[in-house]
Structures are given as C-alpha cells and as structure tokens.
Design a protein around this nucleic acid. Structure first.
Lengths: 187, 187
DNA sequence: TTAGTTTTTTATCATAAGTAAAATTTTATT
DNA sequence: AATAAAATTTTACTTATGATAAAAAACTAA
C-alpha cells in the first residue's frame, strides 16, 4: 500500500501538507516476531503498515492478552505515548515479515501546531480510531463469542488465515479451547 | 462545573479561541429520564455535562446494554454522528435532573477549519476519549468482573451511589445477580 | 523423508456465571 | 404513617465456559 493512499485515509490532504508529512517519513523492514512497540516505554514514533500484520497485546502474569490486530494501511502507535507522553500498556509484535512507514511523533507534533490541515488530519485520525475502538468495545458487550467470531470471519477473513488461533481466541476474549469448540459447531 | 473549566480540559485554549467556541454554546436543563441522544438518528449537537449524570446504552432485543457513563465535565456525543455523519448505535439517557452545555456540531466543524487552536483542541478531545475507551476495552479483557467492580469503586465511588446497580452490572458485562454476589463477597 | 516442534482439536471434570423466582430492602406517593 | 412500586439480594437450579491433559494434525528444518 502506498504512503499516499495511507495518509489520505483519515481525510484528504492538500498536496503541500501531504509533502510536509512525507518529508519526515521513512520506510523500514522488520522480520516476523519483531517487537515494534514496548509496554513500559515511551515510544517516539508512529508506524503505518505498508505490508504485513501486527498484534497488540498486554503481557500479564500468565498469558499475553491480544486486543488489537493491524494490517495493511493501519496505523500502529502507543496511544498513551502519542497522546499523553506516558508509558503504554501494550506490546506490538509483527506476525509476518513486514514493511512499515515510520513517522517520529516529535516532528508530527510540530506539524500539528504549524499546519491546520495536518491538525485536522490528526483529529480525523484519532476520531476514526475512536470509532473503531468504540465499536469493538460495544460489540464485545453486546454480542456472544460465537457471533464475534462470525463477525471477524466476515469482516476480516484473511485475518483468520494469517493469524494463529490462539491469538484470535485471546482477541475474542475466550480460550483457544472454546474457539475450537465454536469452530467445530460451525462445521 | 464552569464552561471554561470544561473546555480547557482537552487542552488549554487561547482566549480568542475559547470565546469563539463559547459564542456557539448555550445552556439547557433536562429532567431525569430525558433521552439526550437517540440511536438511529444523526445527532447535530454535542453536549458537555455541567451537572448531572448520563448513561449510553445499546437497545437490544431483550435488555439494554449500558456501556458508558458520563458525569460533570464529560462530553456527550454520538461519535458516529459527529465523526462520520452517520446514525449512531447508542441512546444516551439522563439519570438525574441535569444541566448541560450545548454546542451544534455544524458550527464546531466550521471552527475546526478556521482556527488551528480549535482544530488541535478537537484533536486532543478525540485522543483523550480514545485513550479512555481503549483503557476500558483492555481492562475488560484483562481483568475479572470482580476486579473491574473494585476499580470502579475506587475510581468513581460516587457512580455506585448515584447509579442503580442494574446499570452498573450491565456496564461491567455481568448480570445483576452476579454483581450482587460479588458485593456480598466483599462485605 | 523423518524427527521435532508448534498449533489445533478432543475429552473430561470443575467452576463461574446465567435464569427464574421469591424475599427483602429501599424509595416514592398519597 | 401506610401503601405501592421499584430496586436489590438471596436461593435453587441449569448451562456455558474454563482448566487441564492428551491426542491429532500441521508446520519446520535438518
């Protein structure tokens, strides 16, 4: 996915502003298993996924809990770092060899103060993420695990293929065994 | 809570920008039980709670599911309407006689395009809401119902007093009976 | 291919949470 | 204060999900 396409996703940007952003963006490649963001660390860049797939998880005593997946076009950032300059609660791990666009938050913050189009772009970015997050929260409360699995199958069939079921189960808030049961019933 | 205090919450604003915002804000009072926002409707205003308490819920086949509480200082809006100009999925109901500040989204959108400070203010507003929502989502996945109840008791003790337990249980994602059991154990 | 590792499924048992209904407490109203 | 209505707790029973262990299947890499 091209950087232009990705940047225009939150909202269209005038060419000048787009170029401003692109000036600070570089490309990096990482192997499967690489940890992009670390909990307990103030992260200083945000990524956009050009190619690949990632998961965010909270490392707890026993098992990690996966609560987010990102793929081509999605932004990857520690919200806590980006918004509050505080340590986050998530690790982000690459689940495939991946290609990423990298933008330092320091530069981005400066652009927010200088360019109203970029400020509004950043606003739209946060707002769209907010809607996605809110939808997941509500969905989690309203729908059963089986329904949520079906939804996922519908909306992101590739995810099921690309990500191992343990992570999917954790994301759905159930055990892997339960997910297996659900899958068996649907067959 | 004063409108100045509330508006400065997402991020400090220069006086001129603050005044611009305030020009479009009016105050309204509503009784307990009043429905502020309706699902299946594109809402055209956002509220800030001066005094009172509200809950957002998704009306489903059998029981409503509460997924958000707001009190003094909190913004109340249908994110879907505000961000995407689409119908939302939530009703918002007042749980007490309340006093609200009202800001039409049409005017706000205009200000976003005209004033970079307001644009960044709107960005911070969305970002902070995003963090709150993300935290709730993760908390939901990571912590048990009992822990989440204790957290709530800790962070918002007034909520337990002001809101009936049926709503709290729904918010925690458990039945009222379960919540009763939890409370009994803590005694 | 073969051995080794990881992932997924199946089976069994234990437990936490749901449902329904009754009992109690709290709140509101005349 | 007395009654009614609403909210909360308790009880008994049922069901769904989790934990654990082990078998089966699917990948990996020599």
């Amino acid at each position: 996915m091209s950087i232009d396409q990705i940047l225009q996703q939150p909202s269209p940007l005038p060419t000048a502003s787009l170029d401003q952003l692109k000036e600070h963006i570089t490309e990096q490649h990482f192997p499967k298993g690489h940890i992009l963001l670390q909990a307990d660390k103030i992260e200083s860049v945000i990524y956009f996924i050009k190619k690949g797939i990632a998961r965010a998880y909270s490392p707890t005593d026993d098992a990690d809990i996966t609560f987010w997946f990102g793929k081509e076009g999605d932004p990857v950032l520690s919200m806590k770092s980006y918004v509050a300059n505080e340590k986050g609660y998530e690790n982000v791990e690459l689940l495939e060899d991946s290609e990423l666009y990298v933008l330092p938050t320091r530069e981005l913050r400066q652009l927010f103060e200088q360019d109203i189009h970029i400020a509004n772009w950043g606003r739209r970015l946060a707002e769209k993420e907010l809607i996605r997050t809110e939808e997941r929260l509500i969905c989690r409360q309203v729908r059963t695990a089986t329904e949520r699995y079906k939804d996922l199958l519908n909306d992101h069939p590739d995810l099921i293929r690309r990500v191992q079921l343990g992570h999917i189960a954790s994301y759905l808030g159930i055990t892997q065994v339960s997910l297996s049961r659900i899958r068996a019933e649907l067959r």
